[in-house]
Each structure stands twice: as structure tokens, then as C-alpha cells.
Simulated assay, not measured.
Amino acid sequence: MSNLDDIRREYTLGGLHRSELPDDPMVLFEKWMTEVRDSNVLTDPTAMSVATVDASGQPFQRIVLLKRFDQNGFVFFTNLESRKAEQIASNNKVSLLFPWHALERQVAITGIAKPLSNTEVLKYFITRPKESQIAAWVSKQSSKISARQALETKFAEMKAKFSKGEVPLPKFWGGYVVEPASIEFWQGGEYRLHDRFLYTKLDSQQASKWEIARLAP
């Protein structure tokens, strides 16, 4: 077994203070997202881990890309026949994690995943590159396949089929908005004395009402 005990570093880029926090966590999230994008230190600053739970209670995570966020929540798109979609259908409580380690930051979110309307999905789908639109038709996400060649053959077939005109939206492709119940901001600190602040929504009918608590590192 490999020993990883000696892999460590200090977190020295800055702290997070209660006096700096806005009442609305989405304001701080937008600020942090802007800073991580402007820093150009991460290849995929919108990448987030989405954790779901299956019928037996087994959690599972995967990386997806955040495509939009606003006061309603955090939006991502996926195949509606995928493992994540099946698990959301049976338990729509999910968790998101943004691992912005280059800035010594993390944002952890819990909430409810709700399906987007067909209009919202189509509005995004038509902005994708044509090859990505075609790829949405090709993969039966999470299912077992015999070889990569099966995907490439199917892609070639669909590319020929949709060579002229627009690529239609697959019925099995959609998206979700995760309405947050809590948002935790983590800023690395020296000697492992990290700064953690947890926003918890007090009233689901009042999006601006949040309780703020500092957590021990």
C-alpha cells in the first residue's frame, strides 16, 4: 500500500471573515465564480461533483458542468435515462461540490433537483455545437457497451442522418435546477484552521432569508 502521509501543504492565500459575508449566498457564489474564472488557473472552473443516492442508500458522485445559476438555483443538463437521472427520480435530494483547490476554496451545496421545462432545455440545446447535439443522440448514458467502436459507429450514422438541417432535441435529454437548502463556503487557512461558513435557508418560500453560521474546520 502506498504511503501518502507526507503529502501536505499550507493554505495561505487568504481568509474569510463574517463581516465580509453578504446576506445572500448567491452574491458570494457569483463573486467566487467570477474570481476563479478570471484567475485562469482552472481548466474547467464550472465543473462540479453531483452526488445522488440509489434505492439502497448507496451514494454516487460524478462530475458535470454547471451551465447557469441564479436565485432559483444551479442548472445542469444530462441524459434523462442516465444513472443520475434514475436516482434523482427516486430521491431528488442531491449535493453539489465545487473543488476550487487552486484558490484554496470549496463550495458545498445541498438541495432539491427539479426537472427543467422542455422550453428551457431546448433553449440550451440549440446553443451546443452540432457534434455535441449529435452525441446526445448516440450514448445511452451509463449503460454497458461492448466497445468504443460501437459509439463511433453510431455517431457516424447519426451524423449522416442529421447532416442537413437542425438536430432535434432528444426526448430523453433534459436538465435540472438544484434549488439550494444550504450552501457552505470553505476557504483554506494556515495550520488547517480553515474558514467555513454555512448558509441555511430558513424559509423555502423566501429565497433571501438565510441563517449564517461559522463552522469549526
Rank of each mutant, 00 (worst) to 15 (best):
K114P: 05
A213F: 14
S82N: 01
V27L: 10
E81N: 15
N79V: 06
P217V: 02
R105Q: 08
G189T: 01
R62D: 06
Q133C: 07
P129G: 09
L65P: 02
D195W: 01
F77C: 04
E211H: 12
L103S: 12
T200F: 07
A181S: 15
K123C: 06
R18I: 12
F77E: 01
V75E: 11
T110N: 11
L169Q: 00
V94G: 02
P115T: 02
R196E: 00
A216Q: 15
Q106T: 01
N92I: 07
A147V: 02
P59T: 10
S163G: 10
M48G: 02
M48N: 04
E35W: 07
V50W: 02
M1R: 03
T34M: 12
V27C: 13
K159A: 09
L4N: 12
A156G: 02
E179S: 11
R105I: 01
F155S: 10
K164Q: 15
L198I: 00
E20R: 00
H101V: 14
T46H: 04
E152N: 13
M48V: 05
A207Y: 12
A216N: 15
S39G: 12
W100I: 04
S49L: 09
K114C: 06
A89D: 13
S146K: 11
K123S: 11
T200K: 14
L151G: 04
A160T: 12
V53H: 02
F69S: 06
L28E: 03
V138F: 09
N118E: 11
K144P: 06
K93E: 11
A51L: 06
A135Y: 07
G111H: 00
G57Y: 04
L151T: 03
Q133G: 07
V36S: 00
V138Y: 02
T119E: 14
A55F: 09
K161S: 08
G15C: 08
S90T: 14
P168N: 12
T127Q: 04
R37S: 09
K31Y: 12
I112L: 09
